[in-house]
Design a binder for these strands. Structure first.
Length: 361
RNA sequence: GGUUCCGUGGCCGAGUGGCUAGGCUGAGCUCUGCAAAAGCUCCUACAGCGGUUCGAAUCCGCUCGGAACCUCCA
């Protein structure tokens, strides 16, 4: 790729290094369009840095860099031993594995300039056209309103978020809760981590997750008195899922729709509204859309952290005892079973027809 | 200094000219033996000051506050 750029006249060699000639490139192509930079401003605003003397212009950048023999990484090249420039690595890898043109390139917005700008210039310089159709730049994360950085000591890793124990974290948050939390905001907005916000997200996710489990257990029976209003409402919700995700991945709006859907699901589950009040096609589409958008589109799976047959069986013994106590109207005993389980983190939920479900904290 | 972006109700966070986003919290109601869960209802905001417009959170200007980038490494 370096050779191609050189032979196209957009680079020059100096002391074993090869630099991209931005001025030359701009005679035929545009540079700085992605980030809206003005090159004259860039030339003025440049600060003094090491190793600039080899460049014709300060905005030029290395696509191949000569290294000293003591450098651990080095490869032979027509210009001597060296390493690829940072930007070039990405252009070369993208082109090799995804082709000379691919659909989406993501990255943090801190990489927009210069890195992605240079990537474009390299591909245009080598192959004559831009490598990427759509650029998606995600915004930065902050913690309690401050930029996350090692020097400030306010950074933590995903696994610390999931495991808890970090001084800034009051507790551990499940991967799904964190995912929900991030999906609540647009990818291009800054997102602020705080215990309060994460805790709220945890509850919100549980609600959607419970509805996911619920609808998987619901199936269509037969149609009775159709409720036209409900039918059009369910169809509307299905459409909105697609509409919102098609609008530059508006996950926050999509989640709002899923919450509306979860209310309808809980109506079906509790029997407040009978499934028979909609037609089979509407119900099946509604069901599959909720499951698809939760699991496949947003990646919000059921939290199967508790999957222990022994524990499950043990709790079910207690559940059966409580059922018996309730039919005997021995509420003192049934309440004790419920309260004692609650105290150790197992919450029983009575259904309408005597069924008892439970969740584990 | 330059460029770009942001400032929304108690908290989080969508929304780009008129139509209540949503979640969390709080209050009330229904259901329930009592709870929990669930459903329903309520709490109607848009940094400040001007301007454009019949009408602005949304457009323009200024002020205040915050963030990112401005090619060392990756």
């Amino acid at each position: 790729m370096v050779k191609k750029i050189l032979s196209n006249g957009f680079a020059y060699e100096k002391n074993g290094s090869v630099y991209f000639d931005v001025r030359k490139f701009m005679e035929k192509h545009k540079y700085g369009e992605l980030s809206g930079r003005n090159i004259d401003d860039l030339l003025e605003g440049t600060r003094d840095l090491d190793g600039q003397d080899e460049k014709k212009n300060s905005i030029d950048f290395a696509i191949w860099k000569a290294v000293t023999p003591s450098h651990i990484q080095r490869w032979p090249s027509p210009w001597g031993e060296g390493i690829p420039g940072w930007h070039l690595e990405c252009s070369a890898m993208g082109t090799k594995y995804l082709g000379k043109e691919f659909d989406i390139h993501g990255g943090g917005m801190d990489l927009k300039f210069p890195h992605h700008e240079c990537e474009i210039a390299q591909n245009v310089g080598a192959y004559g056209h831009a490598p990427v159709r759509y650029w998606m730049h995600s915004n930065m994360l902050t913690v309690n309103g401050e930029k996350m950085s090692k020097s400030k000591g306010n950074s933590f890793l995903p696994r610390e978020l999931f495991a808890g124990g970090h001084p800034l974290l009051e507790k551990a948050y499940s991967p799904m809760s964190v995912r929900f939390f991030m999906l609540q905001s647009h990818y291009s907005s800054t997102l602020d981590f705080s215990n309060e916000a994460l805790g709220a997200a945890e509850k919100g996710y549980r609600k959607l997750g419970a509805a996911l489990t619920a609808i998987k257990g619901l199936s269509y029976t037969s149609e009775a008195n159709a409720n036209a209003e409900l039918v059009s409402d369910l169809n509307r919700l299905v459409e909105e899922c697609y509409k919102n995700m098609s609008d530059d991945f508006n996950t926050a709006k999509t989640l709002a729709v899923l919450f509306e859907m979860s209310a309808r699901i809980n109506d079906f589950k509790s029997g407040n509204v009978v499934i028979a009040s909609v037609d089979a096609t509407t119900f099946e589409k509604f069901k599959s859309t909720y499951i698809t958008f939760m699991e496949d589109v947003l990646g919000l799976m059921e939290d199967k952290s508790i999957n222990n047959d022994l524990l499950d069986g043990t709790i079910n013994v207690l559940v059966e005892l409580r059922k018996k106590a309730r039919t005997d109207r021995n509420y003192a005993l049934s309440d004790k079973i419920r309260d004692d389980l609650q105290a150790i983190g197992v919450q029983l939920k009575d259904g309408k027809n005597g069924e008892i479900n439970y969740t584990i904290e």
